[in-house]
Design a protein around this nucleic acid. Structure first.
Length: 480
RNA sequence: CGGGGCGUGGCGCAGUCUGGUAGCGCGCUUGCCUUGGGCGCAAGAGGUCCCCGGUUCGAAUCCGGGCGCCCCGACCA
């Protein structure tokens, strides 16, 4: 078989493996504008499943969806001083409309804190209006210098939740609740182990008092921030006059939060689970959980196999399994096997004349290559087996990813150990909390403080860089 | 913005050094044959050689300028 049919090896050239996989699995394509991405139907189907998994959780916790405008007056961005500093360099600005130069330039939203803050100021009068819990699904634009499909594109799709509360405690509880929701989604639906934690001041969102994130380790040992939740304190409330009258008749500023998870997460799924054959999708998010490949030699066999395959399709669909029957003409079963493996379908069902005659179906799981992952299942037990196997695969993917992360995470106590650790994975080390140490580490090792995990070992130690007393350990790693 | 690579049918590339008929593989179309791991055979379709200017009898090729894309760093979800 020709080399060009294969992906570059994941272990030899992770970056190129990733790029080609995204294109060949037909998740996305390059757009005419640099750094922009066309999300193809298969990629969008995956994203839709992500959105549904999250949206259900948002609604279950009292959030509602709305839509705010794409265009924001330039002056809005300038109202919150650290927000301006953080976002100005990467704004796309509209200067003309209807053939005329605009009096005030409009920016294409890089995030919507400002325009939503403006609306909240008008909507919130009383403590009775609180909390206000709104989410929106949209796309935003940030003029990034270096882009990569899904991981960092000029325009990306995401959800951004924006809430306003009466007290600091409520805002903090909301911020943490949403972080928990992201972590739960990542673990249960995407089979991606994540480390929930607090960001350092240097890594904080522009305009936030506190930023939390879930951090995941990719298949090359690098870190990816997979979701963020910000406690904005009263910063935006003050900048946009979001105030309410409390029970005692006193005028108070609100406490606000924002939280987001983007199409970047698709990149995480690819980089955590994929292998040299292509994608491996977690069953709970896979557009197709199973694919049926019919096999036949002549017209007589074709008819009987096709009829059997269609019955099987109906039966599995009735069992609420997302299943696809591949009836494409003119391509061999072998081609289809490879094709669906590239696309990461968790389970393949092979149905040929032998199987029809013997009342069997051959099941092949995507996460175990070759013969090891194949078994023959009695026809009447197929639906039950598929459901069982999908659960098993979901769990196996998580277990494998967690084992991988553990194998590449070192409790580095010395700076020497630390440098070795971040060259290929994570270091979990004591940190004094000073930005100077963080900065030096970054300069010398290219590793950044990913987060201070919520889960701490307790006790105290010495900063891995400067040796000063430290009360918390941080996760460090090279990041996307 | 620094470093590197590259622009030639849809995709991947050769041809550029040394100017002279635009080529190969894959893909695509049609027909036959195949189908249990990326089938085979045959016949076809498809190209402003990134753009502009210059040199020349003649430019994909040489010279000048521009544009774009990808990769690696700094910034970032």
């Amino acid at each position: 078989m020709a080399e060009e049919k294969k992906l570059p090896s994941r272990s030899e050239d992770f970056s190129e493996w990733y790029n080609q996989l995204v294109l060949r699995a037909e998740l996305a394509d390059y757009a005419p504008v640099r750094g922009c991405m066309i999300v193809r139907p298969y990629g969008w189907a995956l994203w839709e499943n992500i959105t549904q998994a999250l949206d259900g959780r948002f609604k279950a916790t009292g959030h509602v969806n709305a839509a705010f405008p794409l265009l924001i007056p330039r002056s809005f961005i300038d109202k919150e001083k650290s927000h301006v500093a953080g976002f100005s360099p990467e704004l796309a600005v509209v200067t003309h409309g209807g053939g005329e130069e605009l009096e005030e330039p409009l920016v294409i939203r890089p995030t919507s804190e400002t325009i939503i803050g403006h609306a909240y100021a008008r909507w919130i009068q009383s403590y009775r209006d609180l909390p206000l819990l709104i989410n929106q699904w949209n796309s935003v634009v940030r003029w990034e210098l270096r882009t990569k499909l899904f991981l960092r594109t000029l325009e990306f799709y995401w959800q951004e939740g924006h809430t306003a509360h009466a007290t600091a405690e409520e805002a903090e509880a909301e911020t943490r609740q949403m972080l928990d929701i992201y972590a739960d989604f990542a673990v249960r639906d995407a089979a991606i182990p994540v480390i929930p934690g607090r960001k350092s001041a240097a890594e904080r969102f522009a305009g936030a008092d506190q930023t939390y994130s879930i951090e995941a380790m990719m298949g090359d040992g690098k870190a990816l921030q997979a979701g963020t939740s910000h406690n904005l304190g009263q910063n935006f409330a003050q900048a946009f006059d979001i105030r309410y009258l409390d029970r005692d008749g006193a005028l108070q500023h609100c406490w606000t939060t924002s939280w987001g998870l983007s199409t970047r997460f698709v990149g995480a799924i690819i980089m955590v689970h994929g292998d040299d054959q292509g994608l491996i999708l977690p069953p709970r998010l896979a557009p197709f959980q199973a694919v049926i490949v019919p096999i036949f030699r002549n017209d007589a066999e074709k008819t009987s196999v096709r009829d059997a395959a269609r019955k099987l399709l109906a039966e599995l669909s009735d069992a609420a399994i997302r299943v696809k029957l591949d009836e494409r003409e003119g391509v061999s079963p072998g081609f289809k096997f490879n094709d669906w493996e590239m696309r990461g379908v968790p389970l393949r069902l092979e149905l040929g004349p032998r199987d029809v005659a013997q009342g069997n179906v051959v099941l092949a799981r995507r996460d175990k290559p070759g013969k090891e992952g194949k078994s023959i299942v009695a026809r009447q037990a197929v639906a039950a087996s598929v459901i069982e196997w999908l659960k098993e695969i979901q769990q196996a993917l998580f277990d494998r990813a967690l084992a991988f992360r553990k194998s590449r995470t070192v409790d580095a106590a010395t700076y020497g150990e630390f440098k070795d650790a971040v060259a290929w994975g994570f270091a979990f080390s004591w940190w004094c909390g000073r930005s100077e140490c963080e900065e030096k580490i970054k300069e010398e090792t290219m590793a950044t403080m990913r987060c201070i995990p919520l889960e701490q070992p307790g006790g105290t130690g010495k900063c891995v860089y400067c040796g000063a007393p430290a009360s918390e350990k941080g996760i460090f790693g090279r990041a996307y």
